[in-house]
Amino acid sequence: MPTALPLPLEFRLPDSWRPAPPDSVGAPGVAFVAVHAESDAGFTANISIDGEYRPDDALLADLADASVQRMQEVAESVRVTDRSEVGSADAPGLAQTMAFSALTGDSRRDLLQSQVYLSMLDTGDPRKRAVIRLTLTATALQHASVAEDFRELVRSVRPETGAAS
Rank of each mutant, 00 (worst) to 15 (best):
P28D: 08
Y53T: 04
G93D: 00
E73N: 15
G87L: 04
Q115C: 03
D65E: 14
G42D: 03
F100Y: 09
A89C: 14
A95F: 08
R54F: 11
G124W: 04
T44L: 08
D110T: 11
P28W: 04
R108L: 08
L103Y: 05
V80K: 09
N46D: 13
A41K: 09
A45P: 01
L59K: 15
P22K: 02
G29E: 06
M71H: 05
A45L: 02
V74Y: 06
G51E: 02
A37D: 09
L118D: 00
S48N: 11
R109F: 00
H36Y: 11
T97H: 07
A130K: 03
S119T: 12
S119G: 15
V30I: 07
S48R: 11
A95Q: 14
V68T: 09
R54W: 11
N46G: 10
L63M: 09
D90P: 05
G51K: 00
R108A: 05
E38T: 10
A41M: 08
R83W: 05
E85Y: 14
A89P: 11
Q96S: 13
P22R: 00
S77N: 14
G26F: 01
G124R: 10
D65H: 09
A61C: 08
R83L: 06
L112F: 07
T97K: 09
A41N: 13
Q72H: 12
S24I: 06
I49H: 05
D106P: 08
D40W: 02
G124Y: 10
D122E: 07
S119H: 12
V68A: 14
E52Y: 10
I132T: 02
G51C: 01
S67A: 14
D57P: 07
A130W: 06
A45K: 00
H36V: 03
K128G: 06
I49W: 06
S84L: 06
S84C: 11
P92H: 04
T123S: 15
A45W: 01
S39T: 06
Q72M: 13
A58L: 12
D56F: 08
A102L: 04
A31T: 07
G124H: 07
S114D: 15
T81W: 07
V116Q: 01
R18N: 12
S88L: 03
R83P: 01
R79H: 09
W17M: 05
D106V: 02
T123M: 15
W17V: 03
Q115T: 08
V25G: 03
F100D: 03
L134Q: 03
D82S: 15
I47W: 01
S24P: 12
A58G: 12
A41C: 10
A130Q: 10
G26Q: 03
P19I: 01
R133P: 02
A95T: 10
M98Y: 13
D65I: 05
D125H: 08
D40A: 03
Q96L: 13
T123P: 15
D57M: 07
R127F: 14
S107P: 02
Y117H: 09
M71W: 04
M71A: 13
V116N: 01
L60A: 00
R127C: 10
I47H: 02
G26K: 02
S84I: 05
Q69D: 13
S24A: 15
A34R: 00
V131S: 02
